[in-house]
Amino acid sequence: MDIFAQQVINGLVLGSVYALVALGYTMVYGILGLINFAHGEVVMIGAMIALAVVSALLAVSPDMSPFTLILIASAAAILVCVFLAFLMERLAYRPLRNAPRLAPLITAIGISILLQNIAMIIWGRKYKMVPQIFPTETHEIFGASITSVQLFIVAISGVLMVGLLLVVHFTKLGRAMRATSESQRVAGLMGINVNKIISVTFMIGAALGAVAGILVAGNYSVAHYSMGFMLGLKAFTAAVLGGIGNLGGAVLGGLLLGLIESIGAGYIGNLTGGFLGSNYQDVFAFVVLIVVLVFRPTGIMGERVSERA
């Protein structure tokens, strides 16, 4: 039972990060119908910037309080990522809004490759160690242990997710975003500045992504120029699992995927009589995805899309 509880906690921690990143994918998809392949790279840039700022600050004043340190680093990372998202949308996606569908997908892939290699040139190929800012305390819940960093991750992601849902459902901006995703043309006729809303959507997604990047780097204590790729892929999978374009679906999908992965990794050996080991954890996630999509082709919470008449 202890192992199970432990895997559930690990899954929740992993899942809340997936959910944060998945929100970025799903928001953009909901409005533009575009898979923003570069979103994983934005997450990576967020982690890298925060790490660079922390290292620089620590070098200048080693006895700075951890909270100011992380606050400054996060602010810097979020600013850079938001600016990056703004540039991306303005320069690479907006001109292609009416182009054939695969064209923006290819530019997104291009941006992803570009960002990854720029990061590699700036920060090098080596794994970068994240300095231990917070003291690690381990807490006991239901016979499983959780570190303070992990608690922090779950709490922060929870707050951000609830905050986003509140913004989308109860503010003027949120209403404009929902209207734009329903129909850009009609939203425009209602006096909504569609371009601005799309731009803002990208930026909010990027800000969430930057935070997710910092959390991941803090959790594993390493950062690497290629860390965004797999994370982005998993998060996108989570978004599709939940029903892409649906905010609640992204959160649900993220948490589910995290749980499936960690529980699957813990038990797959026993289930298959030792035939498959924990290195098949990714297979597990993708098989679940395929099975879910076979029975619910638009994801768990996705709306049934009527066929084009």
Binding site: L96, I106, T107, G110, L114, L115, N117
Partner: peptide, 13 residues
């Protein structure tokens, strides 16, 4: 890879 990524973006635009 840098130029490859850039080429993808530019050609598509």
């Amino acid at each position: 890879m840098l130029l490859f990524g850039l080429a993808l973006i530019v050609v598509m635009l």
